[in-house]
Every structure is written in C-alpha cells, then in structure tokens.
Amino acid sequence: MNVSPPTAAAPERRLDVDALLRIRSLEFRAKAVVEGFLAGLHRSPYHGFSVEFTEYRPYVCGDDLRYLDWKLLARSDRYYVKRFEDETNLRCYLVLDTSRSMQFGSLGYTKADYAATLAATLGYFLYQQRDAVGLLTFDESVREFLPPRYRPGYFRRMLGLLERPSRGQDTNLLSPLRTLVETLQKRGIVVLISDFLSETADLEGNLAALRGMGHEVLLFPIADPQELDFSFDEPTVFRDMESGQDIFVQPGRQREEYLSRMREHFSRLHEICTRTGVDFHRMATNQPLDAFLFELLRSRRQAGATTQRRRR
C-alpha cells in the first residue's frame, strides 16, 4: 500500500502524461496506457489481479507446486496447474468525482481529465480481461450510475459517460458510498477516484461498511502539482471553484500554513484508510498513468496472497 504522498516534482517518465492527455479520444488514451503497460509486463511474474480468475495449464518445470491440481493428477495422472477455484468474474465499480474542484489544472489539462483517463484506463484493462466494469459519477450527489456488466459495447457506453461534461458544484464523498452500500449485492472492487477536497467526517463508517460487505476498496486522491506545492507568487484574490467565494491570499505568507493543513487532511484520510483496510494511492496529475496500474496490480497481488492465505 502506497502511503507516501506524491510530489510535485516530475516523476520517472514511463508514459508522457502531457502527450497522452492531448489525445482527444478517451478510448485511445486508455488503450495506449494499457497496451504499453502489458508490453512492459511481458515475462513478468504477475498473472493479473483477478481474485477469481481460473486457469489450467500443463505443469512446467519450475512452477510452484502449491498450484498443482492434485485431484486432477489423481484422476488423470497428468500434471496441471490450477490457479484458482472460483470461476466467477470480477466486478469493478469505478467511482469518479466530477465536482467543480476537479476542473482545476495548471498543466494544460485538469484533474477531471486525468481522473477520467485513469478510470478509462482501468476500465479498459479490466474489459480486456472480460471482467465486469461499472461506473458511478458524483459531485454533491450521485449523477450517473452504470452497473458492472461485461457485454459488447458496454465499455463504449461507459466512455460516453466519462466524456460527458460535469455540471456539479460541490464534493460530497458520502453520497456515492452510501449508494454503493445500499445497492451492491455481489462482492467486487470499488475504486474511488477524487481530489478528496471535502470534509472526511463520516467517511470512515461508510468505508468500513463497504469493507464489511467484502468489497475491495481503493482510494485514488488526485492532486494538481500546483495544489501540492502552492506555487503562487503574487498576492491575489483566490476564488473557490466550488463555492465561488473570493478571499485575498498572500501565497508567500500562507504557503506553509496551506501545506501543513493539506498534509494534515490527507494523513487523516490515510489513517481512516489504514483503519478500515482500504488501499490509498495518492496521484499527482503529472504522474504516468501506467504507474497507477502498476500500483493497483501490486496491491492486488498482496490482496490475492492474503486471500489465498485465508483460503488455506
């Protein structure tokens, strides 16, 4: 689990985010990330992160004997590796914040662009694996809800929703979580992508409820580099994009206070995640998107290991 905050400094470039976000088509963007990522995964030890994915293949020398299907060997005297028993597909719920604050961006694109690309990338990746992907967008309330399905054309419908311009104002993290708690029947993964620029009270209870229902929950707080280092110089009137309120700010004098208050906010959020067993990955909008997939897979591998240990 990634607990270290991202920095505003440009990270190691695996895929140029700026160039990627200049591609108009969201689908193209998602494909570019995922295919580049899969190319990088060649001969990698990861086999995907789907907990219930089932695979039979002939045993080759060097395979872990733990995964050998002894029952099949007993019946047919052949060595097959059986990875998992459960054959049901994964259900992934992409929960995306479309509030007004997501429209902030200092790099030529906004946090909303980045978040939509992130969601599309993840959706495409899972769609490639024939997993069911659903989408929920929210601002001060739930705007769109697309239940997880795997069927032809469903991914494009999801992309259409992602490309729809947001009309919302405020950020209310509780309403999507409550909706999910009330509606989700089957276990799945809940990926919450937001800037989390709202109060965190009552968040813990809802996250705990989701975890209690057996869902995997991943939080991806998105931040613009300028939000992270508050790199303003001139004394200026700052207008809140959500409330429209104007306040006079002297960045030189207020930077330290801003940064400390931000650190405090996200560490509180991180503590909540730790307590409730929720994955927490902070992302800056100048970070490569495949790093996000990498983080996700890594966390899934750990989760898978935990599951298998639980099974045994």
């Binding site: 800037d195 700052f238 994009m241 006079f248 801003y258």
Partner: peptide
Amino acid sequence: RPAEHVEFSSHLFLKPFPP
C-alpha cells in the same frame, strides 16, 4: 488592490488573509 482573481480548486486549506 489586485483587480484580477485566480480560480483555485478549494479554499479548504486557505484562510482569508486580512490585508
């Protein structure tokens, strides 16, 4: 007095600075 304003995502971490 600055005549222009800057749009910022949120005032969550900002306090009005009395001139």
